[in-house]
Simulated scan of single mutants.
Amino acid sequence: MASQQITTARAWFVHVTARNFVVMASDQETRPGIGEVAKDLGTGKIGFVMGEVGGKVQLRPLNGGKEWDAEPSTVRPAPAREELSARLAATNNQSRWGR
């Protein structure tokens, strides 16, 4: 009975993982898709993924502004705590300047 529960739990985990993330080749990491919030580990900045051009991932700051290019290997989904902090900072900045 216990081994059946473990197998069921594994199957559920694989199903949820496959549904929630883009699964890439085994030698690649998962990267966020267009419109998702991501962290550029090269600069430490957080922004929205706008697309890919010339082998670079383009990100835009959460409060708008100029896009920057990042190496695909340094772009990861933003951790929830960091995303929340960045969104709060963007909202505070917009309210401070009346935007």
Rank of each mutant, 00 (worst) to 15 (best):
V57D: 06
S26K: 09
K39Q: 13
M50S: 12
G47L: 00
R19G: 07
E71L: 14
W68L: 06
A70D: 06
Q28C: 05
G54E: 15
L41A: 08
F48H: 13
P61M: 02
M24Q: 12
V22Y: 05
L62N: 06
A38F: 01
F21W: 13
L59Y: 05
P32A: 07
T43M: 04
K39S: 13
K45P: 02
W68V: 02
V53W: 07
I46A: 08
V53T: 12
A18N: 15
K66N: 12
A70Q: 02
V53D: 12
G33N: 10
A25Q: 11
G44F: 01
D40T: 00
G42M: 05
P32C: 08
S26L: 11
Q58K: 11
F48D: 09
G54H: 05
A38G: 05
G33K: 04
E36Y: 03
L62A: 03
E67G: 04
K56H: 11
N20S: 14
L41N: 07
T30Q: 12
G54C: 04
V37K: 04
N20F: 10
E71A: 14
D40I: 03
I34V: 15
M50P: 00
F21A: 08
D40S: 06
Q28H: 09
M24W: 07
K66I: 12
L62T: 02
W68F: 12
E52Y: 00
D27L: 05
D40K: 03
F21Y: 13
E52I: 04
E71M: 10
N20A: 14
V53F: 08
G55Y: 03
V57G: 09
E36Q: 15
D27G: 08
I34N: 11
E71Y: 07
V37A: 09
G47T: 00
I46G: 08
W68C: 09
A70V: 01
D27H: 11
N63H: 08
G51V: 00
K45A: 15
N63F: 06
E71H: 13
P61W: 01
E67K: 08
K56T: 02
K66P: 10
L59H: 06
L62P: 07
G55I: 00
K66Q: 14
K39E: 15
V49Y: 03
T30D: 12
F21L: 14
V57C: 08
S26C: 06
G44A: 02
E52S: 10
R19F: 11
Q58S: 09
K45D: 14
R19C: 04
G44P: 00
G64A: 06
S26H: 11
S26G: 05
G42I: 00
R31S: 12
P32R: 02
V22L: 11
T30N: 10
T30A: 14
V23F: 08
V53R: 15
K45H: 13
R19Y: 06
R60E: 15
P32Y: 01
G55W: 03
N20Q: 14
V49N: 03
R60M: 15
R60C: 09
Q28D: 13
G44T: 00
G35I: 01
